[in-house]
Simulated assay, not measured.
Amino acid sequence: MNKKFGITAAAVLMALSLSACSSNGSQSSSSSTSQSSQVSKKNSNSSAKTNQTNKSNNSSASSSSKPSSQAPEENRMAKMTAKLREALPGMLLPTTDGLGQGSDKLNVRYTKNGNTNVVYYSVGDSSADFNADSVKNEKPFAILTEIKNASSSEVEDTINYTPEQSGLPTTKLDSNTTATIQGAAGQRYLQWNANNYSFVIQASSQLKKDPTDRGKSVLQLSKQYSLPKTSDKGSVRVIVGDSVGSLNTTIAWQDGNNVYQLKAHDTETAFKMLNSLK
Rank of each mutant, 00 (worst) to 15 (best):
D125M: 05
L207R: 13
A128M: 13
L84F: 03
S276M: 05
N115H: 09
M91E: 03
F130R: 00
W253Q: 04
S22M: 12
P163W: 01
E86L: 05
Q202P: 00
F199L: 06
D213P: 00
Q187V: 04
T116E: 14
T96R: 07
I143N: 00
V118Q: 05
V119W: 01
V135A: 14
V238A: 01
P228E: 04
S226N: 12
I147V: 15
S19K: 02
T50W: 03
S36L: 09
S65C: 04
Q187N: 15
D242C: 00
T250L: 03
L190D: 02
S226E: 07
G6F: 10
N115A: 12
V123C: 04
K278Q: 13
K4V: 11
T33L: 12
V218G: 04
D232R: 09
A10H: 02
A270M: 04
V12L: 15
K209E: 15
S126E: 13
V39S: 14
V218L: 15
K55Y: 03
N248K: 15
N275D: 11
N193P: 05
K139Y: 06
A270S: 07
Q220T: 12
V244P: 04
S246T: 14
D213T: 12
R188A: 12
N45C: 00
S246D: 15
V108H: 01
L16T: 13
M14E: 00
L219W: 05
G183R: 11
R188Y: 09
K148E: 12
G167D: 07
A264F: 06
L92I: 05
A87S: 15
S231H: 02
